[in-house]
Computed example of a mutant assay.
Amino acid sequence: MKGPHTVPPSTVPSTTPAAPSTPLPTSPTVPLLVDVDTGIDDSLALLYLLASPEAEILGITCTAGNVPARQVAINNLAWLDLCDAPEIEVALGSEVPVLAPLMTTEETHGPQGIGYAELPAPTRTISERHATEVWIETARAHPGEVVGLVTGPLTNLALALRLEPELPRLLKRLVIMGGAFHHSGNTTPVSEWNIAVDPESAKMVFDAFSGLPADRRPIVCALDVTERIEMKPEHLRRIADQIGDEDAALTPDSAFGSRSRARNPVLRHLTDAVRFYFEFHVTHDQGWLAHMHDPFAAAVALHPELATLRAATVDVELGGTLARGQTIADFAGLWGRDPNAAIVVDTDPAAFFDHLIERVSALATRVGEAEEGGERQP
């Protein structure tokens, strides 16, 4: 795996990443609208948000990407059931990109998008509203309050922008996991997966968010930083230790497809999901690890102080046979266009994982105690 590239010093004010041993400050409640293509790393992002008391999830919208959109919705409903979460609307969105043929990546995330995890069939149901309705009506009902978090292709948001062009000004902020700037792509040599699936939608979104004040510009978590968010077996062992449970055999010398022996349902299913992701990365010569792109973006949505930001004007290449889907950042103002994004250029991965492990361990403990006490079905 390639190491992080050097980024020129920022010319705009930026935040300082928290030190690994420094707890993050208490945050006020953050109303969130979460758009996902769940996905193994989306799954961990959802667990993190469910574990975070400051996260008020107003709705979850589903788009096609890692797996088809309906499977995405089923995965979200099943995780909500497993975690005994409060009622949260899960709405189906676009099942295809706005122009390109649909790509999915079951070879990366498993046939159902959650690796080897076998979640019980959900008892909750998909909303009757379309994802675009959820985006628009939620933003209108809470003007200037909602943070949008998109960890999949930007299709649903682009379609919502066609119906409500004021969305950029109705939202408090947008956080995007997507793109690659000073980093190779992971789908083509120059394109990151979420952008590559639907580059037209990505361009529509970046164009629409132009002209906003600096503190309202979308925060972009691209591969430049998210490929430094490397989950390793010891991170899952730390969760197991904190909840007093066993972890699965996650070492490279164990047989592919090994399943977790954990008693705790959250740890067991999470480990089975992540196991698949580890195996994908090792077979692609990246090591016995898993890049956790989406949980990092979710943490930034709640705690932007985790990230060092740099203003840029971002655009997406739609033409060409080699560079389609490439995200290009103009940091120097060479295009003569105002910045339309705040790109994450640095973070402290250890601080992030300390935070993630603390949160997910607490959630797993609550779920495990409820199950042992007979308050919920295993």
Rank of each mutant, 00 (worst) to 15 (best):
W193I: 15
V96I: 00
A297K: 04
E192G: 01
S254H: 13
L32E: 03
T251D: 15
P349R: 10
G65K: 01
A208P: 02
P199Y: 09
A160E: 11
L24M: 08
E145L: 12
A351S: 14
V30D: 05
A141E: 09
V72Q: 02
D245F: 12
R238I: 01
P143G: 05
R310P: 00
A248H: 09
T125K: 06
N194G: 11
D42R: 06
L170M: 10
A332C: 02
H291Y: 13
C221G: 04
I176D: 05
I229T: 09
T226K: 05
H284L: 03
Y277I: 02
S361C: 07
R162C: 08
V314H: 01
C83T: 14
T22A: 14
H5Y: 02
A100E: 13
V147L: 07
A117L: 03
P339R: 01
A19S: 05
S254M: 08
S14I: 08
T271F: 04
A45I: 11
P9Q: 15
T347G: 08
S27W: 02
S361Q: 08
R162V: 13
D224Y: 03
D41P: 03
A158H: 07
R140E: 12
E133D: 13
A262T: 06
V367K: 08
P20H: 04
S184T: 14
R217D: 02
C83N: 06
R263M: 14
Q242T: 14
T327W: 05
V34C: 10
A262M: 10
F353G: 00
V282E: 13
P378K: 00
Q242N: 15
A19F: 06
H142K: 14
H293I: 01
H281Y: 12
T11F: 04
P265N: 03
P143S: 04
S210G: 11
T188S: 15
A121P: 00
V367Y: 05
W135V: 08
P97A: 03
S14F: 13
L44K: 02
T308P: 01
D35K: 04
S201E: 09
P8L: 13
M1K: 13
G178D: 10
R359D: 00
V205G: 06
P153W: 00
D346A: 15
A311M: 06
A64W: 08
T251A: 15
T104V: 15
G336Y: 10
L32I: 06
E279P: 03
G3C: 10
T16Y: 00
A290W: 09
E118W: 00
A262E: 07
T105W: 14
P25R: 13
K2S: 12
D338N: 09
G333M: 06
G368F: 02
P120Y: 02
P28T: 12
A301G: 08
V90G: 03
R173I: 04
G319N: 11
L174K: 12
I88S: 07
Q377G: 03
T132K: 01
K172E: 14
W79R: 10
A273L: 04
I328P: 02
E227Y: 11
G93Q: 04
F353C: 01
D354P: 08
A255K: 12
D272E: 09
P339M: 02
L92E: 09
R275S: 12
D315W: 01
H269A: 12
Q326S: 11
G244P: 08
T105F: 15
P25H: 06
A160K: 05
A329E: 03
